[in-house]
């Protein structure tokens, strides 16, 4: 089966999700799929009640992967996520109780409500894909994906994620309000949580792991590589930006572009893929100059991208 045939599974999945369950959320669904295919994590940043959690649930439901959920609060402890050792009286020894992070898809709801200490423990697990409790290292399952949501940081009672932590998310995106017709349908139909719980998986774990290998083998030409480099290095010299994109950002951009190309049914990356992924992958990693912090970071990136011509020859 060729690569383009195998990606059918995922395009079907995205189509089913956006047609039957989550109307008007194609973009965020696609970005979630991209994060899943590259082994990255996604941060969804928007107001409460716009379906952040529903998206994560739907993704877990349709892939048949195990799902764990952590509702972050200011008194959440690291061990509430990772799990802890509990004394078992029958055996007469401590045994490790797995926390919610030992799932394939983990929803960290309202991550910016957790204390920095907890945040950093979670993010470390995300990066390392293992948890060390009391000297014992526990590997997290494959595939592993964190689906974090956060409220806009001007909401009260939040601890904004520092830039170094944000850098660990492959993609950061918002959801936005649905269009009028769609929103009316949603209102009329009520919540879809029940339907999601009855969802039939369309994609297996093996298919996801195979797709990840396929994404890795998507061809990245020298021209596109040049284009990525030009984009990234342009952020380092821009007047509005204090700290430009890191090399990790560039790596992630290339990976996300590959996954995007894969979903589009191609075995090579086009500069269009890079341009499309640029904002989602990179905006949250920018550190703007302090006097410019009110500016929309996505807009800054779009301006930069518009200055650099796509390689067409």
């Amino acid at each position: 089966m060729s690569l383009t045939a195998r990606n059918q599974v995922f395009t079907n999945m995205l189509e089913t999700l956006s047609r039957d369950y989550l109307q008007g959320k194609e973009d965020v669904l696609r970005l979630s799929a991209i994060a899943l295919l590259t082994g990255g994590h996604i941060l969804i940043e928007d107001l409460p009640g716009l379906g952040k959690t529903t998206v994560a649930l739907a993704l877990a439901g349709i892939t048949g992967l195990s799902f764990g959920r952590v509702q972050c609060t200011s008194d959440l402890l690291p061990s509430d996520i990772t799990g802890l050792s509990i004394f078992n009286r029958d055996d007469g020894r401590f045994s490790f109780q797995h926390g919610p992070i030992f799932n394939n898809i983990v929803l960290l709801d309202e991550i910016n409500r957790a204390m920095p200490r907890t945040q950093s423990a979670m993010l470390e697990a995300m990066e390392e894909r293992r948890v060390t409790v009391e000297g014992v290292t526990h590997h997290l399952p494959e595939p592993f994906m964190v689906f974090a949501t956060q409220n806009p940081s001007d909401q009260s009672g939040t601890f904004p994620l520092p830039e170094s932590q944000l850098d660990r998310f492959l993609i950061c995106t918002d959801i936005g309000y649905p269009e009028e017709i769609l929103e009316k349908q949603i209102i009329a139909g009520g919540g879809i949580r029940e339907r999601i719980s009855e969802m039939m998986p369309l994609v297996t774990r093996e298919e996801i792991l195979a797709a990840r290998r396929d994404v890795q083998s998507v061809y990245l030409s020298a021209k596109v590589l040049d284009y990525i480099y030009l984009l990234v290095s342009a952020t380092r010299t821009d007047d509005l930006i204090q700290t430009g994109l890191s090399t990790r950002a560039a790596i992630n951009l290339a990976q996300a572009s590959k996954a995007s190309a894969y979903l589009a049914g191609r075995d090579y990356v086009a500069p269009d893929d890079v341009k499309n992924m640029f904002q989602a992958v990179c905006a949250h990693r920018l550190v703007l100059r302090s006097e410019m912090s009110a500016i929309d970071r996505g807009g800054v990136l779009r301006t930069i991208a518009s200055r650099i011509p796509l390689p067409l020859v």
Binding site: A264, A270, P271, D272, S306, P309, L310, P311, L312
Partner: peptide, 10 residues
């Protein structure tokens, strides 16, 4: 469009 402003797929 200016050359290079849009990609081929765009």
């Amino acid at each position: 469009v200016e050359r290079g402003e849009l990609g081929l797929f765009e």
